[in-house]
């Protein structure tokens, strides 16, 4: 079962069990070892370090599933192996394992309070985040008649730009802008989005500054844009807002009309959230 398949509440419960399991496993195994020794079973005390090793692996897993990674949490299994690979006598073993269990517990608390909650399906790239969904739903009705080739072009151009392949994005956007739009109500807006992206990609590819005149969306198109133009914007702000809007518009067109490209678009959603200012 993937994270996306789990209801969020179930994920939270599983996470809580894992959090509890870390001190239980690390302290529990050592305390069980102490108890067995007191009862006269003098088993090699190194074996009871298994609890600390399991606790370290669980902590590393909890660190891994968070969008913000904790390098200390991630590396605890390595330290567990380094510390416990060498056989130790009873007193040294007890001290080392208890100190290690305390450290794991402190690291768990640190992870919870400094590195946020585990990633949800959106942050793990399994489904779209709410702000993107809202924009896509808002514009879905406007581009229904768009032909699949143009929608695929929109996806490719978006992904190329996101990956910093500006020269390829210029070429593809130029071809797409003069291609078939299909029976679309807002065909001119789609062409403009491709042209804006082409212009910006060309400028970035040659590391050129903002030109004096540049392609812009029309005021009547503002209902389709994620970030409508504000009169308070200066030239720089307006120029870059046009790029953000063109990218978001092409993302929405691609998402709604080219289902095969959705996995590639999902992989770029962190960038889309940045464009939306989230």
């Amino acid at each position: 079962m993937t994270i996306a398949d789990n209801p969020p509440q179930l994920d939270r419960i599983n996470e809580r069990y894992l959090e509890i399991a870390i001190p239980v496993a690390s302290f529990g195994a050592t305390l069980a070892g102490i108890l067995l020794w007191k009862m006269g079973f003098e088993i090699n005390f190194q074996f009871f370090a298994i609890g600390c090793v399991i606790g370290s692996c669980l902590l590393a897993y909890l660190a891994w599933i968070r969008p913000k990674k904790d390098i200390v949490g991630l590396s605890t299994p390595i330290y567990a192996i380094i510390f416990f690979v060498v056989p130790t006598e009873y007193t040294v073993g007890v001290t080392l394992q208890l100190l290690y269990a305390v450290s794991l517990t402190i690291l768990l608390i640190r992870l919870k309070y400094r590195f946020g909650k585990p990633g949800d399906a959106a942050s793990m790239g399994k489904e779209l985040a709410d702000p993107i969904k809202t924009y896509i739903e808002q514009t879905s009705g406007s581009f229904t008649g768009i032909c699949p080739e143009t929608a695929h072009d929109a996806a490719v151009v978006f992904v190329q730009f996101t990956h910093g392949e500006y020269k390829e994005a210029v070429r593809r956007a130029g071809t797409a802008a003069i291609g078939q739009m299909g029976d679309v109500e807002h065909a001119a807006t789609v062409v403009r989005a491709f042209n804006i992206l082409k212009e910006h990609s060309a400028l970035i590819d040659k590391s050129l500054p903002r030109p004096v005149t540049y392609e812009v969306f029309r005021p009547e198109e503002s209902a389709l844009l994620a970030k409508p133009y504000l009169p308070a914007y200066d030239d720089d702000h307006e120029f870059y807002a046009m790029l953000d809007n063109a990218l978001l518009l092409l993302f929405s067109i691609a998402w709604n009309n080219s289902k095969a490209d959705r996995p590639h678009l999902l992989a770029c959603q962190a960038f889309v959230l940045k464009l939306l200012g989230k």
Binding site: V159, T162, H163, G164, I204, S207, C268, A270, K274, L275
Partner: peptide, 20 residues
């Protein structure tokens, strides 16, 4: 080789790219 980009444009898809 570096392309002049705004900081917002830098994302995980650009890993390996030279930027200014």
């Amino acid at each position: 080789q570096s392309k002049t980009v705004r900081i917002k444009m830098i994302n995980a898809g650009m890993v390996g790219k030279a930027v200014r």
